[in-house]
């Protein structure tokens, strides 16, 4: 494998306002360009904490270990610096930004990412193409960010940003949750359309069903802040069939200890 796009080295993470609560207890992970990794795990295992920590959320503090992105240690970088380097997080719960249209947001974000203000015409061409890929109406771009959006619209708005910003690493934090089958398919097709051999993808999910549409190269299972198992797509299918219990039992971890 060439140099990984993302590498986590023995990462330990706690809640910033509650430093004695460690959520991630030593995670190692390597994602190469063109690879799709799925990170699965029961509720409360630390999946979203890991995702937002990689993105640079101030709500979490890295106790030890490193986040290496494109060969650079970004552990101490702020979220905006990481994003400008090409890291993108699709939020589990995208935030409402009142009075700011999707176009406003996209223009500002693209300017931040590229350092130049794209001519309005070129921007519009890109926007239309991406909207079409995602089967989204143009009026969508004139609405205020996530304001009054349905669950499916919020997730598609995230993928729209992913498509416009063209990151090197996309982290999809439970992008599948709360979506009906049609919305899930649209979102997954959108992600597939935006995949290139250059981009790394980390899909964080509780369920296997999104992986029916986006086939992962690797599947990891996170339990109580540690990756307890890694494998190929067949691991996701096993979980789909039997749930997390067999893995937990094998490891001697009681479900209560995980969700507590």
């Amino acid at each position: 494998m060439s140099e990984p796009i993302l590498e986590l080295r023995d990462l330990k993470v706690s809640i910033t306002d509650q430093r004695d609560t460690q959520i991630i207890k030593g995670v190692d992970l390597k994602i190469g360009r063109g690879e799709v990794h799925a990170l699965m795990g029961p509720n409360g295992s630390g999946k979203s904490t890991l995702a937002t920590t990689i993105a640079g959320s101030p709500s979490y503090t890295v106790d030890s270990g490193q986040v290496i992105f494109k060969g650079e240690d970004i552990t101490a970088l702020k979220a905006d610096a990481r994003a400008r380097m090409g890291l993108f997080l699709s939020f589990q719960y995208p935030t409402v930004i009142p009075g700011v249209t999707m176009v406003n947001l996209l223009r500002a974000a693209m300017k931040a990412r590229t350092g130049t203000d794209l001519p309005p015409r070129e921007f519009l061409v890109q926007l239309r193409a991406t909207l079409e890929t995602l089967k989204m109406d143009e009026s969508f771009a004139r609405r205020y960010v996530n304001d009054g959006f349905s669950g499916g619209e919020k997730k598609r708005a995230e993928i729209l940003q992913l498509g416009m910003l063209k990151p090197d690493l996309a982290i999809l934090d439970e992008t599948d949750s709360g979506l009906d089958v049609d919305a899930l398919r649209t979102v997954a097709e959108g992600v597939n359309a935006l995949r290139t051999p250059e981009i790394g993808v980390l899909i964080i999910t509780h369920y296997q069903r999104i992986l029916n549409y986006i086939t992962p190269d690797f599947v990891h299972v996170l339990v109580a802040g540690r990756i307890v198992r890694s494998g190929g797509p067949e691991l996701a299918l096993q979980i789909e069939e039997n749930g997390y219990d067999p893995i937990l039992q094998e490891l001697g971890i009681a479900e209560e200890a995980v969700t507590a």
């Binding site: 993105a55 930004i97 009075g99 947001l105 974000a109 931040a112």
Partner: peptide, 30 residues
């Protein structure tokens, strides 16, 4: 300012000041 909204915008590459500019412009939109 809503810290979550701020983080959301920062995660899109806007620095703190740029994010606040966008949030305030949105706040004044009405």
């Amino acid at each position: 300012v809503d810290e979550e909204a701020l983080f959301y915008l920062q995660s899109r590459g806007l620095d703190r000041r740029e994010a606040l500019q966008l949030l305030v412009a949105g706040f004044f939109r009405s």
